[in-house]
Amino acid sequence: MEFLYADWLGTPAWFWLVFLGLVATLTAFDLGVLHKEDKEMGIGESLKLSAFYIGIALLFGGWIWFERGAELGMQYYTGFFIEKALSIDNVFVISLIFTYFAIPPKYQYRALLWGIMAVIVLRGLMIAGGAALVSQAYWVLYIFAAFLIFTGIKMFFAGDEPMDVAKNPVVRWISTHMRVTPRLHDQHFFVKVTDEKTGKLVTAATPLFLALVVINLADLVFAVDSVPAIFAITTDTFIVYTSNIMAILGLRALYFALAAMVHRFHYLKYALAAVLVFIGSKIFVADFVMGGDKFPPVLSLGVTAGLIAAGIFYSLWKTRGEPEPEWPAEDSPAMVQKHIDDLADNKAG
Results as ranks from 00 to 15, higher is better:
Leu272Ile: 13
Val91Asp: 05
Leu34Glu: 14
Met246Leu: 15
Lys200Ala: 15
Ile283Arg: 03
Ala166Glu: 04
Trp8Thr: 14
Ala329Phe: 11
Asp341Pro: 00
Ile56Cys: 02
Leu4Val: 10
Gly10Ile: 08
Asp342Asn: 09
Asp7Tyr: 02
Met126Arg: 03
Asn346Gln: 07
His35Gln: 08
Lys197Gln: 13
Glu37Cys: 01
Leu58Ser: 07
Lys192Gly: 00
Val224Asn: 05
Met261Leu: 08
Phe189Gly: 08
Lys347Gly: 10
Phe231Leu: 10
Arg172Thr: 10
Val202Pro: 03
Ile94Asn: 01
Glu37Ile: 13
Ser226Gly: 03
Tyr241Gly: 04
Leu220Lys: 02
Ala70Trp: 12
Phe265Thr: 07
Ile308Pro: 00
Phe157Pro: 05
Lys167Glu: 12
Ala344Tyr: 05
Met246Phe: 11
Thr203Tyr: 10
Phe92Tyr: 15
Thr206Gln: 06
Ala310Lys: 05
Pro325Thr: 13
Trp14Asp: 11
Glu83Ser: 04
Ala329Arg: 15
Ile56Phe: 06
Asp293Lys: 15
Lys106Gln: 11
Arg252Phe: 00
Lys347His: 09
Lys282Phe: 00
Val224Tyr: 02
Leu86Lys: 05
Val285Gln: 03
Ala260Gln: 12
Trp327His: 14
Ile340Asp: 00
Asp287Glu: 11
Leu220Ser: 02
Gly21Arg: 11
Trp114Arg: 11
Phe81Glu: 02
Pro296His: 03
Ile116Ser: 03
Pro169Arg: 13
Met126Ile: 10
Ile248Arg: 01
Phe284His: 07
Arg110Ile: 11
Asp342His: 06
Arg179Gln: 07
Gly21Ala: 04
Val93Gly: 03
Ala247Arg: 01
Lys48Arg: 12
Lys36Ser: 08
Thr304Cys: 11
Thr304His: 07
Val277Cys: 01
Ala6Met: 12
Val121Ile: 14
Thr11Lys: 11
Leu22Gly: 08
Val277Gln: 03
Met74Gly: 00
His188Trp: 10
Leu9Trp: 14
Ala274Asn: 05
Ala137Val: 10
Ile56Arg: 06
Ala348Leu: 10
Ala259Met: 11
Val191Tyr: 05
Trp139Tyr: 10
Trp16Tyr: 04
Leu208Gly: 08
Asn244Ser: 09
Arg252Gln: 02
Val121Asn: 05
Gly73Glu: 03
Ile143Phe: 15
Leu258Gln: 00
Gln136Ala: 15
Gly280Met: 06
Pro182Thr: 11
Trp317Gln: 06
Gly124Ala: 04
Leu125Ile: 14
Tyr100Ile: 13
Gly55Tyr: 04
Phe60Thr: 14
Val275Asn: 02
Trp65Phe: 12
His188Leu: 15
Ile239Val: 15
Gly44Tyr: 07
Ser332Val: 06
Glu45Ala: 09
Thr27Gly: 01
